[in-house]
Computed example of a mutant assay.
Amino acid sequence: MTRVAFQLQVRPELLDEYVARHSPVRPEMLAEIAAAGRRDYSLFLGAGGTLFGYYATDDDRAAQAYLAASPVAARWEAEMSRFFVGLDGRPDQAATSLTEVFHLEDQLAAASATDSSATTDTEGRAS
Score class of each variant (00 low, 15 high):
T96M: 08
A68E: 08
M1V: 12
Q107I: 08
E79Q: 11
Q107R: 10
M29Q: 13
A20L: 12
R82K: 13
S112Q: 11
S127T: 14
V72L: 04
R90I: 00
H103D: 01
T122F: 14
L67R: 08
E105I: 02
Q107W: 10
E28N: 15
L14I: 14
L43C: 08
R21L: 09
R39I: 15
A34I: 13
R39A: 14
A65G: 01
L87Q: 03
G53N: 04
A110L: 02
F44I: 15
A94H: 04
L8M: 05
V101W: 02
F102E: 02
R82H: 10
R3Y: 07
V4W: 06
A74C: 07
G49C: 03
S70W: 06
Y66F: 09
D88P: 05
T120L: 13
T57C: 11
P24C: 03
P24E: 01
E79T: 15
L98I: 07
H22N: 07
Q93E: 09
E105R: 04
R38E: 15
G37K: 05
T50W: 08
E32K: 13
D40P: 08
L108F: 10
L30F: 05
S127F: 15
G49E: 02
A65N: 03
A110V: 02
E13W: 06
Y66Q: 00
E77T: 06
Y66P: 00
A68V: 00
G48T: 03
L108Y: 08
L108W: 07
M1G: 11
A69P: 06
P71N: 04
S117A: 10
D60T: 14
Y41L: 14
E105Y: 01
L98W: 05
F52T: 11
G53K: 04
H103P: 01
A126M: 12
A68I: 00
D16W: 05
M29N: 10
T96D: 07
D40R: 11
R11M: 13
D88E: 13
V10G: 09
T119Y: 12
A62T: 09
A34S: 13
A113M: 02
A56K: 14
R82N: 08
A68K: 09
S127M: 13
L108S: 05
R90H: 00
D106S: 04
E17M: 12
A35F: 05
A111Y: 12
R61C: 12
S81Q: 12
G49V: 07
T122A: 15
S42V: 07
A94W: 06
E100M: 02
A113Y: 00
T99C: 02
A110H: 02
L43R: 13
H103W: 06
R82W: 03
A36R: 08
A36K: 11
L15W: 06
A35P: 04
L43Q: 15
R3H: 10
D106H: 01
R21I: 03
E13C: 10
D106I: 00
T99K: 06
L8S: 02
S117C: 03
H103K: 01
L51D: 00
A31L: 02
L108N: 03
S116H: 14
E28F: 11
E105K: 00
L98T: 01
G48C: 09
R125C: 11
A68W: 13
E32L: 04
V72T: 14
D16F: 06
F6C: 01
A69V: 11
R39Y: 15
S70N: 05
P24W: 00
E79G: 11
P24M: 00
L67T: 02
A63C: 09
P12S: 14
E77L: 05
T114E: 13
R125P: 06
Y41D: 10
P71G: 03
Q9R: 11
